[in-house]
Design a protein around this nucleic acid. Structure first.
Lengths: 193, 193
DNA sequence: TTCACTTCTTGCCATTTGGCAAGCATTCCA
DNA sequence: TGGAATGCTTGCCAAATGGCAAGAAGTGAA
């Protein structure tokens, strides 16, 4: 499979020459993930970062009452992994499962460490990627503080409409911080408008 | 003023030799910040990262309705700055203000870039610091999704009791994602227990 | 095809939180 | 020191959300 999208993904985060971007892209390995397969389960160290070529994955944890709580959705041109577990090489509390068949490009922790060392531009790419992820997480936390559930739902419609067609309602509800009953009602109200 | 705490702060994030830690600490410059002074105002690029030796600061934004929303509290042995604005050198939407007189160690963006380049251990320290901040933010977002306002309040009592004595109730309330009236009631209920 | 399972909706009611305003105490200045 | 501003509490009621359960519709597997 062509690494065109992967190269574009890299250059989108850190604008560098095609040749440098290709050199980085070469470190990634293709992988097919069948629907419902896990790329990470809780209690394990996250060993690889997956850049998604196609398909959707879902990250979730089990809360103290055993409820499945969706932490994040991963779609095309995002990286699916537990950042904290991966970079600190500690056990993850998170599960990441394919919602659909997926094609990804992955890189192991070891390869990433070596590549950080060998390719300064990759180091910078990695740093910017981290910062972008931090910024996105902060945005999301602010929306949890400031916005109503309905506003968060509308944001999700606008930013990631496909996921609403793919993930079951209860997953979307827990991602938004509400119950599936409430989301069902919000959706009904929103449809009226 | 002695850089003992600063050196310990560095080694706590990334265990390295005293001499390396001191070499990094040397890049930080002392600064006194009087109560109510701002170290960052919205619309400006965050130009420095402040490691707090003593005192408390508060980060906040104004939401669409002009309400003051507290994003974070900064206390001893944390860094006060807008990570995204600082590392990407873009305008911040955030304000950071001293809640009390503060003593800090700061480093400018330029010095940090030079030091990243010159000291590989500092680079690694910076990366770990970013990852720790990411992890803390993720924890906080999860608590917004999973926990009740009262649980979040109790968490704050346990993790940062001093801030409850220093920051006004409405700041703490918006930090927890609720109104000051609600927090006042939650506090009353909690006191009964 | 059938049967179990999942998904989604909805009704009922409880709980949590918000919005607003009044009242009181404290603090901060001029 | 007087007056304004700020901070906190509380009463009243509305709005948002949760918990639970029932039922309809869709899905998947033997």
């Amino acid at each position: 499979m062509s690494k065109t999208n992967l190269v574009r993904f890299i250059q989108n985060i850190f604008p560098i020459s095609d040749s440098k971007a290709k050199q980085i892209a070469d470190k990634y390995v293709q992988k097919s993930i069948p629907k419902n397969d896990f790329i990470l389960t809780e209690g394990h160290i996250c060993s690889a970062s997956h850049v998604i070529e196609s398909g959707f994955l879902r990250g979730f944890i089990y809360d103290v009452d055993g409820n499945d709580v969706t932490i994040s959705f991963y779609s095309k041109d995002t990286s699916a992994y537990d950042i904290f577990s991966f970079f600190k090489q500690v056990r993850s509390t998170e599960n990441i499962q394919a919602l659909t068949d997926c094609e990804t490009w992955y890189m192991s922790y070891e390869t990433m460490q070596e590549s950080f060392h060998a390719i300064p531009e990759f180091r910078e790419f990695g740093r910017l990627n981290l910062i972008n992820n931090y910024g996105a997480l902060k945005e999301r936390m602010l929306s949890m503080i400031q916005e109503t559930a309905e506003q968060r739902y509308v944001n999700l419609i606008n930013s990631n409409p496909e996921i609403l067609q793919i993930a079951p309602l209860k997953n979307i509800a827990s991602y938004l911080g509400i119950t599936d009953s409430s989301l069902s009602r919000i959706r009904k109200e929103f449809a009226k408008k």
